[in-house]
Amino acid sequence: MIVADKKPIEEIIEEIKNHEKILILGCNECVTVCEAGGKKEVGVMASALRMYFLNQGQEVKIDEKTLERQCDHEYLEEIRDVMDQYDAVVSLACGVGVQFMAEKYHTTPIYPGVNTCFLGVTEERGVWTERCQACGECILARTGGICPVSRCAKRLLNGPCGGATKGKCEINKELDCAWQLIIDRLKALGKMDDYEKITPIKDWSTERAGGPRKVVREDVQQ
């Protein structure tokens, strides 16, 4: 999922202080799971903002709504009828949702309510870690299902750098060396032969280096 973290309320207040009718818009997908932008977080933020503005003597209308997703046309269309009631929206979706909202509702300012962090997993409640950088050319088949692009600080593709100590990365003692994990896993799978194979130079044009990306699937297009 896409992992996001809450933005400080002070930052959001600073962005919206000159508006009078504001919609706090949550998303039911990834940001709900990582407890940054779901229905509950929308409720907490809206309640805090209502109290703040009332206490400041500012008359500000703050409403709450949470959509199924903010990255699909059909869900964003659900609020078309009410959008004219607001002069700003704080979107608690990831950066994708914020931008899609902004594209769809061209004349209403859309402010981000969370910091979008990475593609990752829930290790335990309250702890999320990165697993994928969406490089566009998956090499997990050759690396025992552990990604050196997202989990090695140097993104090395042919074995460890030599800086690791006791299986931990040299940039952070708490961070596992991705290549240590890969070697351990290849051993467990009995596939250490794969480790000896040289990975050719990766085509980074499918990653962000090639500019904004696009996937077109004619087979599913209408």
Binding site: P8, I9, E10, A48, L49, M51, Y52, N55, Q56
Partner: peptide, 8 residues
């Protein structure tokens, strides 16, 4: 924390 931030 929230109450401190919003001045309550």
């Amino acid at each position: 924390k929230i109450l401190d931030t919003i001045g309550i």
